[in-house]
Design a protein around this nucleic acid. Structure first.
Length: 834
RNA sequence: GCCGAAGUGGCGGAAUGGUAGACGCGCCGGUCUCAAAAACCGGUGGGAUAAUAUCCCGUGUCAGUUCGAGUCUGACCUUCGGCACCA
């Protein structure tokens, strides 16, 4: 999930500003105390309202990267803020511990994936503790352990029994030299990253989950409280619902079992403009229809297409390629024979894997027709059409032309009429297609959850009985490429008995996609030790759905769609009574190196949090990460920038440590007291609103302004000790969620009862926060010409008069006619002259 | 290429359609010091000007809507995330 790769760290620059307190000792002191007292232990029975706030769990890549801190420190601050608002907050942590990097480490370093993963987990636990987060470690989830993955297997069987898991052939990327399946990541520019051999694709029988059964429901975002619009848009586009018509083109002349080519179109109104048919290279009819004279050419083309990626194939930039297969099909609406091509811009995974080519009204078809000199026939006439062939495909609405009985209809009418007629004659039917494909769950890898299925010659595919779970991942496996799944080598794993007949059986040797683990881990956090099922229903029902989820936007579609599907399918199996896993979502951005580039070992711009925390303490790092800028935008790390935060913490430390009693030996200025109260209460309001909305940067800026103000009034000795104490106390409470260690330390030093983290967030008073005077901006024709200080309660008439009376305004109005005066209460007066 | 975002001082950024540049970094000046660092105080978008008076320019580019646009609309440019086996 959070995947900051394991990278060598550069040593950070010598810092000029050092904390004026012993940050490392304070971190350690309070982390140990909180742990000992268990103040972050989460009780299911706690009567306060529950708030389940999750951050995407990390992949245990080795070292905690500053990117992990960027994901986790602000989310912890937000969860702490919810605690202070009076919620019983569950803010858990775990490890996304299955996956490819562990196998890569096994191959390159000879370490077993288990050893590699668990030692990384151990290290990252230590590093995560240094954050000072409110994680309840008793609820940790590590999904490569049998007590977790057995439930992956349990769910798999439930989905299988429900008809939501099935087997089908699907291509995988294959390196012919390594004789192994490659991940997309292992392919660079079409060649295997290990041996530089050009890749190809092979078809394997693999397991799928029927996420497409839920496509329509996944498009319903109504119950999602607060998800970024961009994520919803991306999911909507990813699902890609299209209404259209599946229509057959007659190929009965060829005497095949298939008597037609089925194509899907969203533009049945353009059916009279079809001048060719294109099949995907993988389409089963390609070998059957290809003429002998074209066979060699077609086969070579198909082989080439299998080597190219979908991104390349779909690129509208690339010149269209294709081959005529020496066959034709009949368009039943006009009885025309049209040639059949194979071309890689058509994919088997969308629609029917075959398209009707209408070059006049589709960009890609037009490009293809031009390349192969195929006719272009306009069948939808633009509203004011001069009758000439357009130079671009016309995608808009118009009147049906060259369209037989439908001539002269609008194309909307034509769509309806043709759809109806086509259905009446049995040539096709209206249907809905999705760009979304079923979820391919099989991986030909070792380090994952074994798929709990057995193949029996007599009984076919059989699920492993629930009582025999987990199917343990055997320790011994061959990681080096052999052409087979690593588990297939292990005879004692593979050979088993058929659960149905007791005869010999062979286990499935593929493992599951790691998105399986992350699809339901939120449920496991609720009752992590429960062994009667993946989760205990009642307690989990109390916590779920997750009230707030945070993580990287790279998971906008896949992970988030899979887990939404998972929860819906569990609901339909009666295990849960919720529709969505995550009510609210917030995506943080990416932290960059101080050179504003993505952190990478080759750039040498990687920051090691252990180093920085060792110098300035966890709180300064937390504050700086939150202060960089808006959390959802990410931003560059800065060794210099963190000085500002350290300096601020030093200044506030001093202020809080002053002996407030000194103030009472000098006269008190009532105006300063009033100002201090106003600034304090405005800060509370600002801080509260901003923390609520993940606007950490501006809430810290507000706290800095409060410190600046307090610093001034201390220098002036202008307030009384009670005002001072009230201000610093409330300040510490606001500081607590973002800088938990120093806030706790100063809370103790100022004589408060342990713990600051068990206090409510301070409340503001609107009267105390109110301004007495405001600055009224006076504009002439929208340009600022004067600013006048007026009472906050000024009336409209008075404000207009003051504006018109202004000498600066009169200088600009002089000799012109005042046409309008715009008044915005509390803000401005704009005098419009001309 | 397709889908989704983001472009504001030297830098990170702030700004319910209403004072552009809050807060911080850096820099400049001052206090303290034998000196430096730290700390503290003050200044800091560009230009014209003797001026902290006043005026002009300024939020990626070009148009538009509006009394008023960083903010809304359209087109374009650049950068970033995703594209189904990295997680």
């Amino acid at each position: 999930m959070q995947h900051e790769g394991s990278l060598p760290m550069t040593t950070t620059a010598q810092r000029q500003v050092e904390p004026r307190y012993d940050a490392v000792a304070i971190d350690r002191k309070w982390q140990e105390r909180w742990e000992r007292d268990g103040i972050y232990r989460v009780e299911d029975s706690d009567p306060r309202p529950k708030w389940f706030e999750m951050t995407m769990y990390p992949y245990p890549s080795g070292d905690l990267h500053i990117g992990h801190w960027y994901a986790m420190a602000p989310s912890d601050a937000h969860a702490r803020f919810r605690r202070m608002q009076g919620y019983n907050v569950l803010h858990p942590i775990g490890f996304d511990a299955f996956g490819l990097p562990a196998e890569n480490a096994a191959i390159s370093r000879g370490v077993h994936p288990y050893e590699w993963t668990m030692s990384n987990v151990e290290n990252m636990r230590r590093q995560l503790r240094s954050l000072g987060a409110i994680y309840d470690w008793d609820r940790e989830v590590v999904c490569c352990l049998p007590e977790y993955y057995r439930w992956n297997q349990w769910f798999f069987i439930k989905l299988y029994e429900k008809g939501l898991a099935y087997r089908a052939k699907a291509p995988v990327v294959w390196c012919p030299s390594c004789q192994t399946v490659l991940a997309n990541e292992q392919v660079l520019n079409g060649v295997c990253e290990r041996c530089d051999t050009p890749i190809t694709r092979r078809d394997f029988e693999q397991w799928f989950f029927r996420i497409t059964d839920y496509a329509d429901e996944l498009l319903d975002f109504d119950t999602l409280d607060d998800w970024p619009d961009k994520i919803l848009t991306m999911q909507r586009n990813w699902i890609g619902r299209s209404e259209g018509v599946e229509i057959g083109f007659d190929i009965s002349d060829y005497g095949l079992e298939e008597r037609e080519i089925r194509t899907f179109t969203t533009r049945i109104d353009t059916i009279f403009g079809v001048t060719f048919i294109v099949l995907a290279p993988e389409h089963p009819l390609v070998p059957k229809l290809t003429s002998e004279s074209k066979r060699a050419e077609v086969e070579a083309y198909v082989e080439r297409a299998r080597a190219s990626s979908e991104i390349d194939r779909l690129s509208a930039d690339r010149e269209k390629t294709g081959v005529f297969i020496g066959a034709s099909a009949r368009n039943r609406l006009n009885n025309e024979q049209v040639p059949i091509y194979v071309a890689d811009y058509v994919l088997t995974t969308y629609g029917t894997g075959a398209v009707m080519g209408v070059p006049a009204h589709d960009d890609r078809d037009l490009e293809f027709a031009r390349k192969f000199r195929l006719p272009v026939r306009t069948v939808i006439a633009p509203i004011e059409w001069d009758g000439r062939e357009p130079t671009e495909a016309y995608l808009g609405n118009g009147f049906m032309t060259n369209s037989g009985a439908y001539e002269g209809m609008t194309n909307e009418e034509g769509t309806a009429a043709i759809s109806k007629d086509v259905e009446g004659r049995g040539w096709g039917h209206r249907t809905v297609t999705y760009r979304l494909r079923d979820w391919l769950i099989s991986r030909q890898r070792y380090w994952g959850t074994p798929i709990p299925m057995v193949y029996c010659d007599d009984c076919g595919v059989q699920p492993v009985p629930e009582s025999e779970l987990p199917v343990l991942l055997p320790e011994d496996a061959e990681f080096r490429p052999t052409g087979e799944s690593p588990l297939a080598i292990n005879e004692s794993f593979v050979n088993t008995v058929c659960p149905n007949c007791g005869g010999p059986g062979r286990r499935e040797t593929d493992t599951m996609d790691t998105f399986m683990d992350s699809s339901w881990y939120m449920l496991r956090y609720c009752t992590p030790q429960f062994d009667g099922g993946p989760f205990e229903a009642d307690t989990t029902a109390d916590w779920m759905p997750v009230r707030q989820y945070t993580g990287g936007a790279e998971h906008a579609v896949m992970h988030l769609l899979y887990s939404r599907f998972f929860i819906k399918s569990l609901r339909d199996m009666g295990m849960l009574d919720i529709d969505e896993p995550f009510l609210r979502l917030f995506n943080q951005g990416v932290i960059l190196g101080s050179d504003h580039e993505k952190m990478s070992k080759s750039r040498g711009n990687v920051v090691n949090p252990d180093d920085v925390v060792g110098q300035v303490g966890a709180d300064a790092v937390r504050c700086f990460l939150m202060f960089i800028g808006p959390w959802d935008q990410g931003g560059p790390w800065s060794d210099e920038g963190i000085n500002g935060v350290v300096r601020w913490l030093n200044r506030m430390w001093n202020l809080v440590e002053y002996d407030a009693g000194e103030l009472d030996s000098s006269p008190t200025d009532p105006a300063a007291v009033r100002d201090t109260q106003r600034v304090l209460h405005q800060t509370i309001r600002k801080c509260y609103d901003d923390l609520d909305k993940f606007k950490f940067n501006t809430s810290i800026a507000a706290l800095m302004e409060l410190v600046n103000h307090l610093s001034r009034v201390w220098n002036d000795q202008s307030v009384d000790s009670a005002t001072w104490r009230d201000s610093t106390e409330k300040f510490l409470l606001m500081l607590a969620p973002i800088a938990p260690h120093v806030a706790e330390e100063l809370w103790e030093r100022t004589g408060h009862a342990y713990s600051v983290h068990q206090q409510p967030f301070p409340k503001w008073d609107d009267d105390l926060a109110a301004e007495d005077e405001i600055t009224l901006v006076v504009q002439v024709n929208g340009r600022v010409r004067d600013r006048i200080t007026v009472s906050a309660g000024i009336g409209e008439d008075e404000a207009r008069q003051l504006a018109l009376d202004s000498q600066r305004v009169q200088a600009h109005v002089d000799g012109k006619t005042v046409r309008n005066v715009v008044y915005v209460p509390g803000r401005l007066v704009n005098v419009v002259v001309g």
